[in-house]
Nucleic acid binder design. Structure first.
Lengths: 180, 180
DNA sequence: ATCACCATGTAAGCTGTTACATGATTAA
DNA sequence: TTAATCATGTAACAGCTTACATGGTGAT
């Protein structure tokens, strides 16, 4: 019954009790690399999760006109998250703009096609340096064991590295053909 | 001004004039692997594209209570598509359920974590056989030159193969860690 | 004083999904 | 005759984005 956004929030709160603001930050920078959401979507969803008894918010001292709340996972929330993780999620709708553009490369003059692929390559190369740096940061703190959140971080960022490498290899393959 | 769905439809119509029904089919099976949409979204968008002068529909004989129309690209539509392809599209929102689950692997007992990753691995292996089969089918018809739609097909499916291989390698890396 | 950041909320609008609706043709 | 396929459309709803709204704290 819980939405994917709800489960994403449970996954974050499971790691660390957090305010809506902190969760919104996470869904921009670290977790946002693979699951993004805005605060306007997060706050109502947190209210729903609390109504469903999956999280509880405790009021804390904070800045601003409205009360600040820090949420933590309940036992029911932990069950819900584990149930979702136990079965592989059905992949949602696919809307891959990059593949759509590569699918249409034949429609461009040769030089512009090369320019398009090169700029995608640049983007992936940048992403790779970001992921690789993040990854060596994690590894430098010691190899995480599979029952700690840091293992999830390492797994996610490793996927980012492997994916970016594959994307770059793809661009190189296409460039070879276009120049060849 | 045109939506991404609109550009996806232009990209398909650029290859081959098509009815809304045929476009909806494409967005299930071949093109649907990287850009999916339903007929309920496609028909109104086709009307909008025609209003904007990017495609024109010609009534043809066909089954059904309403007139059947086959759409083809106009010169303005070709310009619009080329303009979009010339600059690399801004990546839309990221909502990667698989990475979210891997990020949360630490939260599961070891055996269930292994089960989850194995089932993702199975899914990617299936995808790989589909892409690989599709790819050898294209290559068997002769190497396409970069100015033919078949080159786009080959580029897209090559990306599918490389991506699936990277996904499998990722799963294997995680499984290695989980099994110790 | 001005700016960035902390912190939470609502409203309008666009995008996308599911479901409802209609009817002809062709193959089992 | 029953089902699949061709072919098009609308309506209700869910999900997400952009923009509006408020106000406190701490640094420059």
């Amino acid at each position: 019954v819980t939405s994917t956004l709800g489960l994403a929030l449970l996954a974050l709160v499971a790691r660390q009790a957090a305010t809506g603001y902190e969760l919104a930050r996470s869904m921009e920078r670290p977790a946002g690399f693979f699951y993004a959401a805005r605060h306007s979507q997060i706050y109502p969803e947190l209210a729903r999760l609390q109504d469903a008894g999956l999280i509880v918010g405790e009021e804390i001292a904070g800045a601003g006109p409205r009360p600040t709340r820090r949420y933590r996972l309940t036992d029911a929330g932990a069950d819900e998250l584990r149930r979702w993780l136990a079965t592989p999620a059905a992949g949602g709708p696919v809307r891959d703009v990059k593949t759509l553009q590569f699918y249409s490369l034949w429609f461009l003059p040769r030089d512009e096609a090369i320019g398009l692929v090169e700029s995608w390559r640049r983007r992936h190369a940048e992403a790779l340096t970001v992921y690789a740096a993040e990854r060596s940061g994690i590894v430098a703190d010691g190899d995480p064991t599979p029952d700690t959140p840091r293992f999830g971080n390492l797994a996610a960022v490793t996927g980012g590295v492997l994916g970016a490498q594959a994307d770059i290899a793809w661009c190189d393959w296409v460039l070879d053909r276009l120049r060849g």
